[in-house]
Design a protein around this nucleic acid. Structure first.
Length: 191
DNA sequence: ACCGGGATGTTCT
DNA sequence: GAACATCCCGGTG
């Protein structure tokens, strides 16, 4: 059975929370997917973070309390989903980059008509949002007890997650702040 | 398989 | 204007 995450799960630094999210389930609209790939973004001080230059209207949620969804719009057409982590005001977050479909697969296929194989349904941060029906209306909502939640269903994450540089960024590329389940077929591809 | 380019709009220089 | 935590499609090998 799925259990709510303990209070304080998201209170630690995003680089600590990120690997712990591997193996957890994202649940929304009767669909569920197991997280296999994440990236940590620190707030001010991380040049790749949306919060690097302080608060703006877009990143306001990042500066709020941990455990909430930060959902942003990019490239004129894509939503991406993060979990706010760390002390309030530090604007840390973990980006969900890929997941393995677990429940509601038919609904995911309907939402992701261009996916040719089920392995592609949540393979990438924007694809994951489409498959699960996540959009900007979720921004700022509670990820422990709200409409969309992250839960622990008792399946252990990897003992030794793989760490790599983050994908799709032009600054902070030296930091190994991407964590993946080793050799999982649902990982996003490029580099 | 790999690559290049277009889509589309918000944010920032 | 340019960049952007992306994806899709159509070219070529």
């Amino acid at each position: 059975m799925s259990e709510r995450l303990p209070q304080g799960f998201f209170a630690e630094d995003p680089t600590v929370v990120a690997p712990r999210l591997l193996g957890k389930l994202v649940v929304h609209r009767r669909r569920a997917a197991r997280i296999v790939e994440v990236e940590a973004y620190r707030g001010v001080g991380d040049p790749a973070s949306h919060a690097a230059r302080g608060p703006t209207p877009r990143n306001a949620t990042m500066f709020g309390p941990p455990g909430r969804w930060y959902v942003y719009f990019t490239y004129g057409m894509h939503w991406c989903a993060n979990l706010v982590c760390g002390p309030e005001g530090e604007a840390g977050a973990v980006l969900l980059r890929a997941a393995a479909p677990v429940r509601g697969v038919a609904a995911m296929r309907a939402a992701r008509a261009t996916a040719r194989r089920d392995v592609e349904l949540c393979q990438g941060p924007a694809r994951l949002c489409v498959a699960l029906g996540i959009d900007g209306s979720l921004d700022g909502t509670d990820a422990v007890s709200g409409r969309a939640v992250v839960v622990d269903d008792g399946v252990a994450g990897p003992e030794q997650p793989v760490t790599t540089p983050r994908i799709g960024i032009s600054r902070g590329t030296d930091l190994l702040w991407r964590w993946t389940v080793p050799d999982d077929p649902h990982l996003s591809r490029r580099r």
